[in-house]
Computed example of a mutant assay.
Amino acid sequence: MSKLLKAAFCAVAAATLISVVTGPSLAADKTITVQAWGTSWEQGLQKVADDFEKQTGIHVEAVTQSGSADGYARLQSMADAPKIDVWFTTSSLAARVTSDDKMFANIPPDKDAGAGAMIPGAVTNRWVAAYYYPLSIIYRPSLTKQKISGWNDLWQANFKDALAVPDVETYQARMLLVSALLNGGSIDDVGPGFDALKRLRPNIAMFYGSDSDARRALAQGDVSVLVGPPSQAKPLRDAGVDVAVVSPKPAPVMFDVMTLVKTQRQDLAIQFIHFVVTKAPQATISSSFDMGPVNSDVVPSPDLAAVLPAKADQVTFDEAKVNAGIGAWNEKFKMDIAH
Rank of each mutant, 00 (worst) to 15 (best):
K111M: 11
P24R: 01
L143G: 06
R96E: 09
I18E: 08
G67N: 15
V315G: 09
S296P: 05
V294M: 10
V257D: 08
W329T: 09
T56Q: 03
A130I: 13
T263P: 01
A62S: 10
H59C: 00
K54E: 08
A113W: 00
I138V: 12
R216Y: 08
P230Y: 06
T284N: 08
A162L: 05
K198Y: 04
R126M: 11
M118D: 13
A81I: 02
M291N: 07
S149F: 07
V34I: 10
K145N: 13
F194S: 01
Q172W: 11
I187Y: 01
A306Q: 08
E53F: 05
A338I: 07
D213L: 12
F9V: 14
T31M: 06
S25N: 02
V12E: 05
E42Y: 01
L182R: 05
F289N: 01
Q43K: 11
G150L: 02
T144H: 02
L304I: 06
A13S: 11
Q46D: 13
Q46W: 07
Y139F: 13
S40F: 15
Q264D: 11
R237E: 10
A310W: 00
S40H: 09
A320M: 02
S91K: 05
R96L: 04
V123K: 14
W151Q: 02
T31C: 01
P202N: 10
R140I: 00
V299C: 00
D153W: 04
W37T: 08
R265W: 03
A214Q: 05
V299Y: 12
L5Q: 07
A320G: 01
G114R: 14
Q156K: 15
A219N: 11
D222Q: 15
G23A: 10
S247Y: 06
